[in-house]
C-alpha cells in the first residue's frame, strides 16, 4: 500500500495538487483513495465534482478513483456501526457524540483516520490532503493520541472505579476528587457512558489507530507551495520539521510559476511599460528569488505554471505523471 500526504501552507494549491496526483496514479493503473483531513472539505470541488455525496467511485484510465469526503457525523456513524453493533445508536445519540458534529476540528481528523481502516481494503494507493501548515504535522501525531485515548485509563478515571487499578495512587485520587468537586455528576456520567461505549469497541478502535499509525509512518510527503513570501517560508519550515520526524519530503511542488515572466523581464524597459514597470519588475524579481529559495530546500522540484481554472486539474496531472516514478525511486 502506497500512501502520499500532501502538505503546505494555505492557498498554495494543496487540494488541487492532491486531486491531480490521484488522477495521475489512477491513469497509471492504480486504485487510488483520495481524502482530505481539512475540516474545510474542498476536495470534491478540486475534482470538479458535486459534493452532494460523501463517497464517489469511478474508473479513470486503467485504474480507479475512490473519492471520500464524509462529514464528521457520517464518519463517526460509520466507525460506531462497524465497531459497536447495536450499541451504536444510543452511542451516537449521546451528549458527548454531539460534540463531534458541532465542533469538528480535531475530532474530524481523528474520526476520519479511524474510519479509514475500512476504506483501504480494495485500493493500492491513498492520497491524503491536509489542512494548512501545522495541521499537517499534527495529523502525524494523531494516531498516538488516539491510542492513549482508547487504552482504558480514561474510563477508569471517569468511573473512579478501582477495577482499572486507577485509584491506586495519591495523584489519581486527587484527580478524581477534582473531577467530583468541579464537574457535575451528570456531565461525568455522560462522559463515562461515552467511554463505556467506546470500551466495547476498544480492540477494534485500537486496531484502527494502529493501522492509521502504520499508514502515516510509511507515507511519502509532498510539499506544495506558491510563489509568495509566506508560502515559501512555510514550506521550508514544514520541510525541516518533517525531516526531524524522519519523514523526508523529497519532492516539492511549486504552483503558479510564470516561466515566461522570468525570461521576458530581461527585455523590459520603463518606457515600454509606463507606470507598471516598477510593480512588474518587483513582482518578477520576487518571483525569481522565491523560486530559488524554494528549490534550495528540495532534492527535486516540480514547477507547475500559472494556469487558468478550466483544464488546470488535467494540466497538473500531466505534469505530475513523469515525476511519479522518479519520486518513488527517491523514496526508496
Amino acid at each position: 500500500m502506497k500512501v502520499t500526504v500532501i502538505a503546505g501552507t494555505g492557498g498554495a494549491g494543496k487540494t488541487t495538487t492532491s486531486a491531480a496526483l490521484a488522477l495521475a496514479h489512477a491513469r497509471a493503473g492504480e486504485r487510488v483513495l483520495a481524502l482530505t483531513l481539512d475540516p474545510a472539505r474542498r476536495l470534491f470541488d478540486a475534482f470538479e465534482r458535486d459534493a452532494s455525496e460523501s463517497f464517489l467511485r469511478w474508473r479513470e484510465g486503467s485504474g480507479e478513483v475512490h473519492l471520500w469526503m464524509p462529514t464528521t457525523e457520517d464518519a463517526l456513524a460509520e466507525v460506531a456501526h462497524a465497531t459497536m453493533g447495536e450499541r451504536a445508536v444510543p452511542f451516537l445519540n449521546g451528549a458527548v457524540a454531539q460534540l463531534f458534529t458541532a465542533a469538528p476540528a480535531g475530532l474530524h481528523e481523528i474520526v476520519l483516520l479511524l474510519a479509514l481502516h475500512r476504506r483501504t481494503r480494495d485500493v493500492d494507493h491513498i492520497v491524503i490532503d491536509t489542512a494548512p501548515s501545522a495541521h499537517a504535522l499534527a495529523a502525524f501525531d494523531l494516531p498516538a493520541r488516539m491510542l492513549s485515548l482508547f487504552d482504558g485509563r480514561v474510563l477508569g478515571m471517569l468511573e473512579g472505579s478501582a477495577r482499572g487499578g486507577f485509584l491506586s495512587s495519591m495523584a489519581e485520587r486527587l484527580v478524581r476528587s477534582v473531577l467530583e468537586r468541579f464537574f457535575p455528576a451528570d456531565a461525568l456520567q455522560a462522559a463515562a457512558d461515552f467511554y463505556r461505549a467506546l470500551g466495547v469497541a476498544r480492540r477494534p478502535l485500537q486496531r484502527a489507530s494502529e493501522h492509521a499509525s502504520r499508514l502515516l509512518a510509511s507515507a511519502r510527503v509532498l510539499i506544495v507551495a506558491a510563489p509568495t513570501e509566506a508560502s515559501v517560508r512555510g514550506a521550508r519550515q514544514l520541510r525541516r520539521e518533517l525531516d526531524a520526524r524522519g519523514l523526508n519530503p523529497a519532492l516539492g511542488v511549486m504552483n503558479r510559476v510564470r516561466e515566461g515572466l522570468l525570461e521576458e523581464q530581461r527585455h523590459w524597459t520603463p518606457e515600454a511599460l509606463d507606470d507598471a514597470y516598477a510593480a512588474l519588475t518587483a513582482y518578477a524579481t520576487q518571483h525569481a528569488t522565491l523560486l530559488e529559495r524554494f528549490e534550495g530546500s528540495f532534492e527535486q522540484v516540480l514547477r507547475v505554471p500559472h494556469l487558468p481554472a478550466p483544464g488546470r486539474l488535467e494540466a497538473i496531472r500531466e505534469l505530475l505523471e513523469p515525476v511519479l516514478d522518479a519520486r518513488h525511486r527517491l523514496a526508496g
Binding site: A103, L107, R145, L149, R153, V154, A171, V175
Partner: peptide, 15 residues
C-alpha cells in the same frame, strides 16, 4: 496535579 494526569491529558488533547 490534575493536568499532570495522563488520562486527563489524553482526553483534553483530543478536541
Amino acid at each position: 496535579a490534575f493536568l499532570g494526569s495522563e488520562p486527563v491529558r489524553a482526553l483534553l488533547d483530543v478536541s
